[in-house]
Design a protein around this nucleic acid. Structure first.
Length: 426
RNA sequence: GCCCUGGUAGUGUAGCGGCCUAUCAUGCAACCCUGUCACGGUUGCGACCCGGGUUCAAAUCCCGGCUAGGGCG
């Protein structure tokens, strides 16, 4: 790893009587087990999570995620900024059209290096973004061919796409990296088995994830950060249940469900989430890794998930699929060639306030980065607005109606004749 | 008026006697994209200028016409 200079952190949590946890703790080299209890410090600092509203018709709830970068109401969606930026879009746009972002610890450790980010005082200062930042560990990169995929009990083995160098990413290394990067919420290293793996492979993934989670917890040293445990288990109900029970029993600050949206059917995904949630402590924030289509989000909010991250809105935008309150819009279609309306009449984003569908289509058709930027700004704003609507609807008891409406509109394409746009003033 | 060159999907092209039920790009259409080294993927639509001839066989060779560009008058 690029950050070899990092020494193992020496603080640990005061853990409950979990023998396997203590066994592992004893085996972690050079670990100085002190009596520092991070949750006490967090309490003193007044950071944490509390539930403020609950939906009566579903498991949906509103929470307040209190971080050192401010308090944020959940459910909310965060844009994926793997390399501390998006594609054609960066912090300046994120500041107006996101409520949070998630960066990738593994990728940032390769470029520019986590010690580099540490020198700047952390990721927020490095990229000049002051809303909550999550860092994903890099476990997901295992399913990317460019990173190669190999897993062992020790960690994930990968090849840097930058220079082909091979590394083993261990829970210890990723904790050091994430501590240096300094995001508000960090993900433990997890072991993600690809879709279609056998039950034995998913079992191994669960076992590794559990071991690595315990290691991560022991090495968690920054009381300003929330450490999230990750539930695996593929699409086997019993494995999801087992994983949720174990991860849920550990003193993580938040819980994430991983290993979904990797090629399974919608029903398989919902079943996997549904199998896990009841076994996770209710009062902790729950993140759903990698899910971001509007219909999946309303569905998963109703299953009790609080935060989401996904490339879906931005990737779709770049490819010409635009989200509106009437459903998806294929902006590349010839029917918008001379459409003088804004993308969505009800949107307040820069793109909708300034440009016509015809112009954005023109830019996208030419493959211009500017078009991709405008399209992404809109989709991210849409997600931000959607999440706000979700929160309002949970408060006033109409969440179920919003959910039904979004699902109805997002599981089919829009009839262009029914689009309502606003003529853009120029 | 004469001469030369060319005419292949909407556009730009490959092929220059049988491997052409014709290539590639773009376009159009439909579907897709979910912890981003992706400015992407899948499928479908769409053409040999017209007529005649040579040949077992023509987008490919020959003749005429039409047409485009260039040259000479």
């Amino acid at each position: 790893m690029p950050d070899k200079s990092n020494k193992p952190k020496t603080k640990r949590l005061k853990l409950d009587q979990n023998s396997s946890l203590l066994d592992i703790a004893k085996n972690v080299k050079k670990l100085d087990i002190t009596k520092i209890n991070l949750s006490d410090i967090k309490k003193e600092k007044n950071i944490g999570f509390e539930i403020t509203h609950k939906d009566t018709n579903s498991k949906a709830r509103i929470g307040l995620l209190k971080t050192v970068h401010g308090d944020f109401e959940t459910p909310y969606f965060m844009a994926v900024a793997t390399k501390a930026t998006g594609k054609y879009i960066g912090p300046d746009d994120y500041n107006t059209c996101t409520e949070g972002i998630i960066c990738n610890a593994l990728v940032l450790s390769l470029r520019p290096g986590s010690s580099q980010i540490k020198k700047f005082g952390g990721i927020h200062k490095f990229m000049n973004y002051d809303k909550p930042v999550f860092t994903d560990c890099g476990g997901f990169q295992m399913v990317r061919e460019s990173f190669m995929q190999d897993r062992s009990k020790k960690g994930i083995h990968f090849k840097s796409p930058f220079d082909g160098k091979r590394f083993v990413l261990t829970p210890e290394k990723i904790m050091n990296i994430e501590t240096d990067i300094g995001a508000d919420c960090i993900m433990m290293l997890d072991d993600l088995a690809p879709y279609g793996s056998t039950k034995e492979e998913f079992e191994r993934s669960v076992e590794n994830t559990h071991n690595w989670g315990t290691h991560s917890l022991i090495l968690h040293s920054n009381p300003d950060q929330f450490l999230y445990g990750i539930v695996q288990g593929g699409f086997f109900k019993d494995l999801r249940e087992k994983s949720a029970k174990y991860i849920g029993s550990l003193p993580f600050d938040g819980l994430a469900i991983g290993g979904v949206a990797i090629g399974e059917t919608r029903e398989e995904m919902y079943d996997a989430i549904h199998a896990a949630v009841p076994f996770l402590p209710e009062n902790k924030p729950k993140h759903l890794l990698g899910v971001g289509s509007p219909d999946d989000i309303v569905e998963c909010v109703s299953l009790g998930m609080d935060t989401f991250d996904s490339i879906f809105p931005t990737q779709n935008a770049r490819h010409g699929t635009i989200f509106t309150w009437d459903g998806r819009l294929d902006l590349m279609s010839a029917q918008f060639e001379s459409d003088e309306n804004s993308i969505d009449a009800n949107c307040t984003c820069l793109t909708c306030k300034t440009y016509t569908r015809a112009y954005i289509r023109h830019l996208l058709k030419l493959g211009e980065g500017s078009g991709r930027r405008y399209a992404q700004i809109h989709n991210l704003q849409f997600m931000k607005d959607l999440m706000q609507k979700i929160r309002l609807s949970i408060k006033d008891g109409t969440f179920i109606d919003l959910k039904t409406d979004i699902i109805k509109k997002y599981r089919k394409n829009i009839d262009p004749k029914n689009l309502i746009g606003v003529k853009v003033k120029r």
